[in-house]
């Protein structure tokens, strides 16, 4: 292509951009927002390799903070907690959502179903502070849960919130309590989108309810399940910061301390900016890797990526 043609093309492009000026003006606040609150912080991540000075320029220290992290005994425990909590939430809750949707769909009485739906969607909208407040009270020694256990013959009260054995199960349960209804919506809408003629054909063939669930309903849930599974994998190292922060106390901190609460404690509360940034950087890199991994795996299996 000769240079004249190139020039002509550029002129056309420029003209087009000029005619779209007002549209870019509409995008400008959003772009500025992301540059200021996302791109600038990304530049600040170089702090992981520098010693922080508030007045003078930061001094380069190389991998010092990464060595500190690797040699710290806390870090291994925290990484282990993060992985265990995240993994268990996956294992316990991921199947619960489609099962709840199937059970709702099996209910014949639409009034009862609506009642269960309206109640179960609500906890999703409560803040973790409110949820923590409610369950700290329910799970206390004199709380409702212990009362019910007494009815079933348990004599000694369990202090769930301060027990290292129980606190993780409290986290899993409360996560489920909050998200069971809301996160099952995607599966429930997939079920009601099933073509009714499939059911009719099955009824004519004399299929049992179980066979209908296995051969008609379950296949309709596979795609949303794969989508949700890979979408969540990218956030694997998060493990639920807001929940853990509000459910932890001195008695159980060591067994539920996760990467994000650690970053918060050393970074903001004790002002070790560089060390906290180094942990964030490790977490960010692993996160990007997980997102890319899920994107390409998803493309391969479902033909649909994250973007």
């Amino acid at each position: 292509m000769n240079s004249l043609e190139k020039k002509e093309r550029r002129k056309i492009l420029f003209k087009k951009l000029k005619s779209e000026k007002i549209l870019y003006l509409m995008l400008l606040p959003t772009i500025i927002y992301f540059i200021v609150f996302r791109v600038f912080p990304i530049f600040n991540m170089r702090l992981a390799f520098y010693k922080y000075n508030s007045r003078s320029p930061w001094t380069f220290v190389g991998l010092k903070y990464f060595r500190m992290i690797v040699s710290s005994p806390d870090f291994l425990q925290i990484l282990k907690n993060t992985l265990v909590i995240s993994f268990m939430k996956y294992i316990l809750l991921f199947p619960a959502f489609p099962i709840f949707a199937i059970l709702l769909n099996e209910l014949r009485s639409s009034e009862t179903r609506k009642l269960v739906q309206v109640i179960s969607y609500l906890p999703h909208f409560l803040s973790w502070i409110v949820i923590a407040g409610i369950w700290i009270s329910m799970l206390s020694v004199n709380g409702g849960v212990n009362e019910i256990l007494h009815i079933f013959g348990l004599e000694k009260s369990i202090d769930f919130m301060t027990s290292k054995d129980w606190i993780k199960w409290v986290l899993y349960f409360c996560e489920g309590w909050r998200s069971l209804g809301w996160d099952s919506i995607i599966y429930f809408t997939a079920i009601i989108a099933i073509n009714p003629s499939l059911y009719e054909a099955a009824e004519i063939d004399g299929a049992s309810r179980w066979q209908i669930i296995k051969n008609i309903i379950y296949p309709a849930l596979v795609i949303p399940m794969v989508t949700m599974f890979i979408l969540n994998l990218g956030f694997f190292l998060n493990a639920g910061f807001d929940q853990v922060l509000n459910f932890s106390n001195d008695a159980v901190l060591s067994s539920i301390d996760i990467l994000d609460t650690y970053i918060y404690r050393i970074g903001i509360q004790s002002g070790q900016y560089s060390l906290a940034t180094a942990v964030s950087l490790i977490k960010g890199v692993v996160g990007v890797f997980l997102v890319l991994f899920t994107h390409f795996t998803s493309k391969k299996f479902t033909g649909k990526g994250v973007w």
Partner: peptide
């Protein structure tokens, strides 16, 4: 997708 972390934002 990319979260720069708490301290850089702070």
């Amino acid at each position: 997708l990319f979260d720069p972390g708490l301290v850089p934002e702070y």
